[in-house]
Design a protein around this nucleic acid. Structure first.
Lengths: 140, 140
DNA sequence: GGGTAGAAATTGACGCGTCAAGTTCATCTT
DNA sequence: AAGATGAACTTGACGCGTCAATTTCTACCC
């Protein structure tokens, strides 16, 4: 469980010069039909802090993979849009990424264990989120 | 799968001022009956690079949790030994660590999924290690 | 026995994530 | 309408991990 994310990350970086997280950012953007999303929304979708996202987006911007633009008349809101180059990069990286997940996770498992893994994922996620908050009630 | 290690790490750090990896290092040392181990051996046991280990051990040493000493007449070999303070720290941290793993992983799962998780762990580990090396033969 | 190989560990530079602080707006209050 | 509040980002400093280079020994070779 500890080595899997590390292995995926290492491989992505070798093959596409993209962090797993950078890939997520680009990938989420590429799924929007105008390839645009507001920073906060992007942060939620990638479950990252705004700070982390800002740093990463800054780097991706200097690499020419996306651009930022303030939304006028709406506080400090900022939109980030995937550039053509960025779209090409994510399209090029996707097959490798999918292959990696397949090879390291999906293929070695029997279907019964794959199903179990889904249940495990949900349960663990619930425990982590529920733990500190105790389902938003009856806590002191 | 991605959030679990992060969650465990964050919690350990809050509760014991110890990284998961730092805890591993101290814990492995505490299991040796003389609380001593050679750097390279420790690196293998914690599956870390010698470089990473050296950095971490350096910090733990300045925190007074362990000490380093060259083994004379044996190349550049170095032993690291847990200090009394280090032992106390790991003993104090252990229950919290175990509790966290229980709470986030073990307790939310049914026994059937727990068993599946073991199989999954082995299979994934094998895929990761086998992938780049192709079981140490017939590769180019 | 001087020289090379190579094992064991350390070091420095660099990139990324986090945390706390700072900006820049819009909005609400009175 | 001036001032406070708060939302949405950004920035800087700091710690950790990685990679490449370096150091420090032993051992082998001829």
């Amino acid at each position: 469980m500890i080595s899997l994310p590390a292995a995926l990350d290492a491989r992505m970086q070798r093959e596409s010069q993209l962090t797993f997280f950078e890939y997520m950012v680009l990938s989420v953007l590429s799924e929007q039909e105008d390839r645009t999303m507001q920073m906060s929304a992007l942060a939620v979708r990638t479950s990252a802090s705004l700070s982390r996202l800002s740093h990463v987006v800054g780097r991706l911007e200097t690499r020419g993979l996306l651009t930022r633009s303030r939304i006028p008349g709406a506080g400090r809101r900022t939109n980030t849009t995937l550039t053509e180059a960025g779209y090409d990069v994510v399209v090029a990286a996707a097959p490798g990424h999918v292959a990696a997940v397949r090879e390291y996770l999906i293929d070695p498992l029997e279907t019964r264990d794959l199903k179990a893994l889904q249940r495990i994922g949900s349960a663990v996620q619930a425990a982590i989120n529920g733990g500190p908050v105790r389902q938003a009630a009856a806590e002191e």
